[in-house]
């Protein structure tokens, strides 16, 4: 499964980069991430609850940041396993100045295994895209101006 997407974020590149490698922000942006605990320098244990329709599963695994070139690019490696199977993949994330804000390009390559692959192959791409879209949508909201109430 290969996914590519380009997103825009209404903030300068350095701030977006900082947010993207901040575990607190990552946890907020990864839908279903219940836990993100640093285990080594750039490695985190993660627990995610993923639900697509009636299909729900809890995955536990690791998130690792690599090849970091602040504030331009880094690679995100994700591995997780759960009852429905396993997921693994990596995404190269590139940030470019795009006035106003930042353009983010994400090239992801992922694999699913187990029951998910055997019965859900037709949905994996669409589900992966949805998760990617949601991630960057949430990231964008991190930079929304604070609302006054």
């Amino acid at each position: 499964m290969k996914l590519t997407g380009t997103y825009r974020c209404p903030a300068p590149r350095a701030r977006v980069y900082a947010a993207l490698i901040d575990p607190v922000v990552l946890q907020r942006c990864i839908e279903g991430a219940e836990q993100l605990v640093r285990t080594a320098g750039d490695e985190y244990d993660v627990r995610m609850r993923i639900g697509i329709g009636a299909v729900k599963g809890v995955f536990s695994g690791t998130v690792r940041l690599a090849d970091m070139q602040a504030p331009e690019a880094f690679t995100l490696h994700v591995e997780g396993k759960g009852a429905p199977g396993f997921v693994s993949g990596s995404a190269r994330i590139r940030l470019d100045d795009a006035e106003p804000g930042t353009a983010i390009t994400c090239d992801a390559d992922g694999q699913v295994g187990g029951v998910l692959a055997a019965v859900g192959s037709r949905l994996v791409d669409a589900a992966g895209r949805r998760m990617m879209d949601r991630f960057f949508e949430r990231l964008g909201r991190e930079f929304d101006p604070p609302t006054t109430s």
Binding site: G53, V55, A83, L116
Partner: peptide
């Protein structure tokens, strides 16, 4: 909880344990 009507999507997902309501 999940609603059970015809069960033609839900039950297969449950049997595969992809859904565990």
């Amino acid at each position: 909880a999940k609603l059970l009507a015809g069960g033609h999507s839900l039950i297969p997902a449950m049997k595969l344990r992809l859904a565990q309501p």
